[in-house]
Amino acid sequence: MLMCRDLADIASDYIDGELTSRQNLSVKMHLMMCKHCRTFIGNLRASTDLLKVHSSGRENEELIRKIDERVAEALRERKSDGGTRE
């Protein structure tokens, strides 16, 4: 029988739909009976979603500025080499 600890161990696989159908079924059965694990799965899922929202708009401005400069310089060099591409 699947214990709470076992469920916690495979919780991410459950969330991502990576379990076999048999494992999936035993997780679902466990969740029906266990309030704590339902809370845990819900919270782990929320934490995962949090990350999607949090990091999607993040950029390293300083790094991007440096890259822009280097790319611009490299593009200029190539153009002045006569290597205009069209």
Binding site: M3, D6, T39, F40, N43
Partner: peptide, 13 residues
Amino acid sequence: AKGRWDLPPKLKF
């Protein structure tokens, strides 16, 4: 030791 929650998650996010 039985693999049950000793300290379950208290709050729901």
